[in-house]
């Protein structure tokens, strides 16, 4: 399945141009209080990322080579559902520590992957899986008009 759009450089461009890497200098031991400080720059960059496509997945690794089983499962579900690659963007949080830390705070969700549809946070892998199984995901994606047109639906069987 080829869900990948060119890796979006918008996020990196936005964060790097705006600000030297303050995150890089931050000690590894962050207290919950420190972690709550999501900078305006990062927030703006994530706003942009979330709005970059109708369907946005923040994941570990890339759609072709997911670096985590939960990210892999999420990509497979979106593939099985027939999400249109043209309407999909994946962000690899492992490529950007600002994004990795920031998205958790932004979504108020502690784990990766995270799915957004039309800028709305849908959930993580468990929610995606549950919605996939009970049919509500198909319904929602259909309503949002983000699936590949009927006649082009890939017939690739799920693994």
């Amino acid at each position: 399945m080829s869900l990948r759009k060119a890796f979006p450089s918008a996020f990196r461009a936005a964060t790097r141009a705006a600000r030297p890497s303050t995150f890089a200098a931050t000690p590894r031991f962050l207290t919950p209080i420190q972690m709550r400080l999501l900078s305006d720059d990062t927030r703006a960059a994530i706003d942009k990322a979330v709005a970059s496509s109708p369907v946005v997945l923040f994941m570990k690794g890339t759609p072709e080579t997911p670096a985590c089983g939960f990210s892999r499962a999420s990509i497979q579900i979106l593939g099985m559902q027939g999400v249109d690659p043209e309407k999909f963007t994946a962000f690899n949080v492992l490529e950007d520590s600002d994004l990795r830390a920031g998205i958790k705070e932004y979504s108020e969700w502690p784990t990766i992957p995270q799915l957004y549809v039309d800028k709305e946070f849908i959930g993580g892998c468990d929610i995606l899986m549950t919605m996939h199984q009970d049919g509500s995901l198909a319904k929602m994606l259909e309503e949002k008009n983000v699936l590949v047109p009927e006649e082009e639906t890939p017939s690739e069987p799920p693994k």
């Binding site: 108020e108 969700w109 502690p110 946070f121 849908i122 959930g123 993580g124 468990d126 929610i127 549950t130 919605m131």
Partner: peptide, 9 residues
């Protein structure tokens, strides 16, 4: 579901 999981998180 989202709200439930948020409660646990």
């Amino acid at each position: 579901l989202l709200a439930r999981q948020r409660m646990v998180n």
